[in-house]
Design a protein around this nucleic acid. Structure first.
Length: 534
RNA sequence: GCCCCCGUAGCUCAGGGGAUAGAGCAACGGUUUCCUAAACCGUGAGCCGCAGGUUCGAAUCCUGCCGGGGGCACCA
């Protein structure tokens, strides 16, 4: 990997391989962990050692001897078992600052996903109750993944699928109806305090007809409002009922039958998914003639593909991991294509308060809703905490810990760097600094180790975006933001930006602008604000 | 029984086949006439769950085992 803002090391190495009479090879580059090892490193010599029959260090020496240093590279050396390490020249550092400033909001964006039309479906909680922290994780994750895909040039639609037909909706309607009549909900109905709240709402609004419909609309509004407050907005809310009404379910079954994957057994209609990698076959239409939820899933996938999406991404909780096999089977059976369907599974969130587990149960009503959680910890802290861990990690979310708005919480560490930058900008304005343009700025004056390290970290941003997008791993953005903030705080401690030295002030001013832009872009992808003051 | 995720410092977690495995918190010590000390600097702390395998090289890939969490429907 070698980002556009870096010198063309790959070509230099390949040319050197050729003139040293060594076999051609596309060299892999990496960022050395240790700073002494330079800015970029390649292991080509080691990978060639066996086939060439020479020790890796000797090969590395030959490559280096035959190499013409590309522009922007100050030095190259052989180290360790045979690494070839490159050190960037000062003008490369200036180039990074200029690139970041010039690109602005687009800094870090690429076009390697251009032309793709991606549907990202997430949250998709049924509107029979308020969403909880698990949905919150999915909201944060799905939105961030969507944003990352957009950063690769893809056109993304954020979609929310919900069940507005069927048994659960009926039970929900009955529960609210009972509450309005002052009665207890049915035994197998919904019980939480929100049901009586909802009933009160509807009574105040004078709703009398079609209570079930009104209740679920109201619930969906509440969920939407919660997500909105969390900074997550959907392009499409898709109700299952539309599939029933349009006849899409029957069409889907016939479509799959025509493709030769449907059979009947024991009075039911089955989809032969086992032959396509699923654990077992699945029922589409029950013996009583009712289509299953799975049939709707099939119709829905076909509908999405028909809407012109090239890629269908599903973000689901780990309890849905069993869906992977059947959904990919549907993708293949329906002709959508399994390579166009991607299922991202995330682990659960356990809620604690001072190390004590908070029980979440819709039945008992002892549920901490996501709304309440945001009330307590704030949208930024909640979102950041839910995003800084890998989707594969179970999160133990301790409310008391996250709400503690002190140094304990990394979100403040990152946001504080934003506030400090804003402070510098205010000072620069007050003292009448005239920064000129970044192109004229004397960036060669940025020689302090803290300055160079900050530039290095800024320069890594495009790689981070690409990697995070390709791995669907927003936590890499969060971890990077912490790294960048650290680089900034060290710079801030060591280097006074606004000083009597007008030239140095200009150079540092633009470095800070580059840092601010990078930080803003990273926090923007995470949906976390970059405050001007704290 | 089968499937998925996890196991790395006292705690919570990063770690894209590479070089001396990192960060935050917690503990201890230091830094402010100067753009916000929600910061910075320093100290201690590790058979990367265990055992094999692949590789020039494994925390990372493969297999098995142990431990923790979750899932298996003609429910939605």
């Amino acid at each position: 990997m070698s980002p556009e803002s870096s010198p063309d090391l790959a070509t230099a190495v390949r040319t050197a391989l050729a003139s040293a009479g060594l076999p051609d090879r596309d060299p892999a580059f990496e960022r050395p962990r240790q700073r002494e090892h330079g800015d970029w490193s390649t292991n080509v010599a080691m990978t060639l050692a066996k086939s060439v029959g020479k020790p890796p260090r000797q090969i590395a020496d030959e490559v280096v001897a035959a190499m013409a240093l590309p522009a922007g590279v100050a030095g190259v050396e052989v180290a360790g078992p045979g690494f070839i390490n490159f050190r960037l020249a000062q003008d490369a550092f200036a180039g990074i600052v200029r690139a970041a400033v010039a690109a602005g909001q687009a800094w870090g964006r690429t076009d390697h996903g251009a032309g793709r039309r991606v549907n990202v479906e997430f949250v998709s909680a049924n509107p029979t109750g308020p969403i909880h922290v698990g949905h919150g994780r999915q909201a944060a994750l799905g939105d961030a993944i969507a944003g990352l895909l957009e950063a690769t040039g893809a056109a993304v639609t954020r979609e929310y699928y919900f069940n507005d037909a069927g048994v659960q909706m009926r039970k929900f309607g009955q529960s609210v109806t009972a509450a309005m009549a002052g009665e207890d909900p049915p035994e197998d109905g919904y019980h939480g305090a929100y049901i009586t709240e909802l009933a009160d709402d509807l009574r105040r609004a004078g709703v009398e007809d079609n209570l079930q419909e009104a209740a679920y609309q109201r619930m969906l509004e509440r969920i939407t409002a919660t997500l909105e407050r969390f900074g997550v907005r959907f392009d499409v809310f898709f109700g299952e009922r539309a599939l029933h009404r349009s006849g899409a379910l029957e069409e889907a079954v016939e479509h799959l039958r025509a493709a030769g994957h449907v059979y009947e057994s024991e009075g039911a209609v089955w989809l032969a998914t086992a032959a396509l990698g699923d654990d077992k076959d699945r029922v589409l239409v029950k013996a009583d003639g009712e289509p299953t939820y799975f049939a709707a899933d099939c119709a829905y996938m076909i509908d999405k593909a028909a809407r012109g999406f090239s890629d269908l991404v599903y973000v689901l909780g780990s309890d849905h991991h069993g869906y992977i096999g059947r959904m990919l089977a549907v993708a293949e059976a329906s002709g959508v294509g399994r390579e166009h369907v991607e299922i991202i599974i995330h682990q659960f969130v356990n809620l604690f308060r001072d190390q004590e587990a908070v029980r979440m149960s819709k039945r008992t009503g002892e549920i901490v809703t996501f709304d309440e959680l945001i009330d307590e910890v704030g949208a930024d802290a909640a979102r950041y905490t839910l995003l800084r861990f890998s989707p594969d990690t179970t999160i133990d979310f301790d409310i008391a810990e996250v709400v503690r708005a002190d140094k304990d919480n990394p979100v403040y560490y990152v946001q504080y760097s934003s506030a400090r930058i804003a402070g510098i900008m205010r000072t620069a304005t007050e003292r009448g600094v005239e920064p000129g343009t970044v192109d004229e700025a004397p960036l060669h004056l940025l020689e302090h180790e803290a300055e160079r390290e900050l530039v290095r970290r800024i320069g890594r941003w495009p790689e981070v975006v690409t990697l995070a997008a390709d791995e669907r791993a927003p936590h890499r953005v969060a971890r990077y933001a912490e790294d960048l903030a650290e680089g900034f705080h060290k710079f801030y401690t060591d280097c006074q930006v606004v000083s009597d030295d007008a030239e140095l002030t200009r150079a540092r001013y633009w470095l800070v602008v580059a840092a601010r832009q990078t930080l803003a872009n990273a926090l923007g992808l995470l949906g976390v604000s970059a405050p001007e003051r704290m």
